[in-house]
């Protein structure tokens, strides 16, 4: 029902429940269990931030309004309130137990999904490039290795073409950044 309503005139009863008053878009996206998990995490983060911020206030020895703890407390307080609001929204028509169960079910399902595995492969390659290759190899060699490995993994083209494209790209990048603009490279 909510999706059918028009943008210009959301019904009064839906104005604050399922329809955004500005855009008129539907709020429910079928991922309430994820919102629930995020809200719980954010509540924890905000409480932790407030505790740390209080520590800054105490150790600065200044009045609260002039202390370095003031702004973090306000921001973390804001996050707490917003997370609470998200939590309440995510629990509409459900219970904490039900949502927790849905989160527990969603985690193994998500970990097995193709999208997650593909993204993990990308992150793994980029991690190796940033934390290992760039630390020990010159920039051009590390980048050439990365590009070739990624092109080959994604089967972007034949191996020879992959080498040529990777070489030309790195050559172009070095020429543009290091030679033309004199930008220091990693």
């Amino acid at each position: 029902m909510a999706e059918e309503k028009t943008t210009q005139e959301p019904a009064d009863e839906d104005r604050f429940a399922g329809i955004d008053p500005v855009t008129g878009a539907a709020r429910s996206d079928g991922k309430e269990h994820l919102d629930f998990a995020t809200a719980v995490l954010l509540l924890g983060v905000s409480i932790f931030s407030v505790i740390l911020a209080y520590g800054y206030y105490v150790s600065s020895g200044k009045v609260f309004y002039a202390s370095p703890g003031l702004m973090p407390v306000i921001i973390a307080g804001g996050v707490f309130l917003l997370a609470l609001s998200l939590l309440v929204q995510s629990l509409k028509g459900s219970s904490v137990k039900e949502r927790a169960g849905q989160v527990c079910e969603a985690i193994p399902r998500g970990l097995k999904s193709k999208r997650f595995l593909n993204s993990s492969a990308a992150l793994g390659m980029f991690w190796v490039y940033i934390f290992i290759l760039l630390e020990f190899l010159p920039f051009w060699l590390a980048s050439l290795s990365l590009l070739f490995a990624v092109f080959a993994y994604l089967k972007a083209s034949s191996l020879i073409k992959c080498i040529i494209i990777a070489g030309c790209s790195i050559g172009g990048i070095v020429l543009l950044f290091q030679v033309a603009f004199r930008v220091p490279l990693p």
């Binding site: 996206d29 702004m71 609001s85 998200l86």
Partner: peptide, 20 residues
């Protein structure tokens, strides 16, 4: 936020927290 301002504001406030 695509119709969920709370999410947009959470994002903004987390950004503010990181700026600290």
């Amino acid at each position: 936020s695509g119709g969920r301002p709370v999410k947009g504001w959470i994002s903004g406030f987390i950004g503010l927290l990181f700026s600290q």
